[in-house]
């Protein structure tokens, strides 16, 4: 089945301080597209330009040159601006700085309120959004009393309530502890598999990336690598030179190979690792 492109970047450049003689590029000649329903990871070290991608994807920033389209509409088209923002939601790193209201459900309602929806519709969307991030119980809680993971889930609910086709997550777990990280990742995966929302997840946690449909590696404003997780993680040297690393399972596999064990390439999940190891044992 041919799925259509939801977001596409074509030869996108983005420069800070455009007026300067030698503009500093956050993105250079970046071309990629995201299909509807896809789970795309964007990896890169801090300052590699990955956060700029998030802001370009929903028209918050406009490319210096090149074209970004969302569902066929150019983000430079002012008439399409609202529509683009409705279709592509963004969740940022620090949940504290994206929550507007003091009460959970009032914050989730913020987006739908901006869309000028009728009250009943807002109610329905808020309830649904809170259910989908499993925060219904806390709907009357004060936002600042929540844990980091809970706050981030409220922020996600706030975006879901706008019923976007795609959500871009800009390092959503960077400030969370393992428990919060697990809960947020679980929520994100759920959104993709159960609700069919297209997800672009920007991160530098390699463990998370093993579950991607496709991975894009950014290095110094340019795309360094693109492909399925297995392909990307077999480029060990290149990843390292991009300031990244392998998921732990792959690291262990590699260490085994180095000590002379004929361990197979491209093992990413712990389950695969166990299978491969057990097979090797049988062979010995």
């Amino acid at each position: 089945m041919e799925q259509k492109d939801l977001i596409s970047f074509q030869n996108v450049y983005y420069a800070y301080e455009e007026e300067a003689e030698e503009p500093a590029y956050a993105l250079k000649n970046v071309t990629f597209s995201v299909k509807e329903g896809e789970f795309l990871f964007i990896l890169g070290h801090n300052g590699s330009g990955k956060s700029t991608v998030a802001k370009l994807a929903n028209g918050l920033l406009l490319p210096t040159s090149g074209v970004v389209t969302v569902d066929g509409a150019d983000t430079k088209d002012e008439n399409a601006q609202m529509d683009v923002r409705k279709k592509v939601g963004v969740v940022f790193q620090n949940p504290d700085n994206q929550i507007v209201a003091s009460i959970v459900e009032e914050d989730v309602a913020f987006g739908p309120e901006n869309l000028c929806l009728p009250r009943e519709e807002i109610r329905a969307r808020v309830d649904e959004a809170l259910r989908s991030v499993d925060m219904t119980e806390k709907r009357h809680a004060e936002t600042y009393r929540l844990s980091g993971g809970q706050k981030q889930r409220v922020a996600i609910a706030g975006v879901i309530a706008m019923r976007p086709k795609c959500i871009v997550f800009d390092e959503p777990t960077a400030m969370l502890d393992p428990k919060g990280r697990r809960a947020v990742l679980h929520t994100i995966r759920d959104l993709n598999t159960r609700f069919g929302i297209t997800v672009i997840l920007i991160t530098h946690f390699m463990e998370e990336a093993a579950q991607a449909d496709r991975i894009l590696v950014l290095n110094d404003a340019e795309i360094a690598l693109e492909g399925r997780p297995r392909e990307v993680f077999s480029e060990y040297e290149l990843l390292l030179s991009c300031g990244l690393e392998l998921p732990d399972t792959a690291k262990l596999g590699k260490a085994l190979q180095e000590s002379g064990v004929p361990f197979p390439d491209g093992i990413l999940s712990p389950d695969e690792f166990l299978e491969a190891y057990m097979r090797l044992r049988k062979d010995h």
């Binding site: 802001k55 929903n58 918050l60 609202m82 923002r85 409705k86 939601g89 963004v90 940022f92 620090n94 504290d96 700085n97 994206q98 507007v100 459900e105 009032e106 309602a109 913020f110 987006g111 739908p112 309120e113 901006n114 869309l115 000028c116 929806l117 009728p118 009250r119 807002i122 109610r123 808020v126 922020a155 706030g158 975006v159 706008m162």
Partner: peptide, 25 residues
């Protein structure tokens, strides 16, 4: 930093001048 991040997040959630916003409550 917080102010600028919040403004960005509000813009992403389609906040404009807010004159015609409807309300949950």
């Amino acid at each position: 930093r917080r102010a600028s991040e919040l403004a960005t997040a509000m813009e992403c959630r389609c906040y404009t001048d807010g004159a015609n916003r409807t309300r949950l409550r």
